[in-house]
């Protein structure tokens, strides 16, 4: 109950924060601007729209996740709002989990709005030829409509993966925020995100015979400890569905479970540190 009260308050606070609203408006603007892309051939247009749209949702989502993650708890501590919260019957874990859940809901809402705008733009831009074909009794062309709807569901999966990736990033930032300053946390979370995106690189460096023996454990540690953000980069099969791929549904489920497990571990660690934190 208390956790939910803190989460609801976090959502209300975030939705009224100017900087987060600016990011959301910029994201929506970036997605909508793709409406003006010149019409190339249909296939090329679809590819560009998908790549650009998913890229924009992720790009602006990163800012929202990091800004929220690094500020939510430290701003309460710095501005001493925490005194009036923790002096009430609020358990410390309820506060941290509530803050995280609020961030997760806010992030979800932002990604949902950005994703919805992207899908709408995509539908408007790609659906027109299918309907034109139908108007011309071109039933083979109309089959594009079926293809369109399957692509939409694929893109929704892609957006969900972006959400999981950013949720994990927010959890990293929130974990560091219980014991680090905002500035240090900003750079550290960003570094973790970048290294985590290069997970396949650290993995191959750890196993490569050309890597110096002393560096191998370091690469191995990076690969094991840093969350694998690269797991969620499934844009390529979504953008080029004709390229042969493994069972994408199962892959996404595994990636989501991996992210969820990592997120829970980070929140639990954050709670453990915050439990003894002096505010």
């Amino acid at each position: 109950m208390t956790t939910w009260v803190i989460a609801k308050n976090t959502l209300g606070e975030a939705m009224r924060r100017k900087i987060l609203n600016v990011f959301l408006i910029l994201a929506l603007g970036s997605v909508i601007i793709s409406l003006t892309f010149p019409f190339l051939d249909f296939r090329q247009q679809v590819t560009i729209l998908k790549s650009f749209g998913l890229g924009m949702v992720q790009f602006w989502g990163i800012f929202i996740a990091i800004i929220m993650g690094i500020t939510l708890i430290p701003s309460d501590v710095d501005q001493r709002t925490i005194y009036t919260i923790l002096s009430k019957p609020v358990k410390r874990y309820e506060y941290v989990v509530g803050r995280f859940l609020g961030a997760a809901i806010t992030l979800g809402l932002n990604i949902f709005l950005m994703g919805a705008a992207f899908l709408l733009v995509f539908a408007v831009k790609t659906n027109a030829p299918a309907f034109t074909a139908l108007g011309n009794y071109d039933f083979r062309g109309f089959l594009g409509l079926w293809q369109w709807s399957s692509e939409i569901s694929g893109l929704m999966g892609g957006i969900a993966m972006v959400y999981m990736k950013l949720l994990l990033l927010a959890a990293v930032a929130i974990f560091f925020s219980v014991f680090m300053s905002m500035t240090v946390n900003f750079f550290l979370s960003s570094a973790v995100f970048i290294i985590g995106n290069l997970s396949s690189v650290t993995e191959s460096m750890a196993s490569s015979p050309n890597t110096a023996a002393v560096l191998k454990p370091l690469y191995k540690a990076f690969h094991v400890l840093v969350p694998n953000f690269g797991n969620y980069d499934i844009q390529n099969p979504l953008i080029h569905p004709d390229v042969p791929q493994a069972d994408i549904g199962m892959y996404m489920l595994k990636a989501a479970l991996y992210g969820l497990a990592y997120t829970i571990i980070l929140v639990v660690l954050g709670v453990l540190v915050f439990q003894r934190k002096e505010v």
Binding site: N9, G12, E13, R16, R17, Q79, R80, T81, Y83, T84, S87, K88, P89, V90, K91
Partner: peptide, 20 residues
């Protein structure tokens, strides 16, 4: 926690959520 139900605190120069 049980004690906190029966007490309250007004900090010096309190800061509250300004959006509320």
């Amino acid at each position: 926690i049980d004690v906190k139900r029966k007490i309250s605190y007004l900090p010096e120069t309190p800061y509250f959520y300004e959006h509320m």
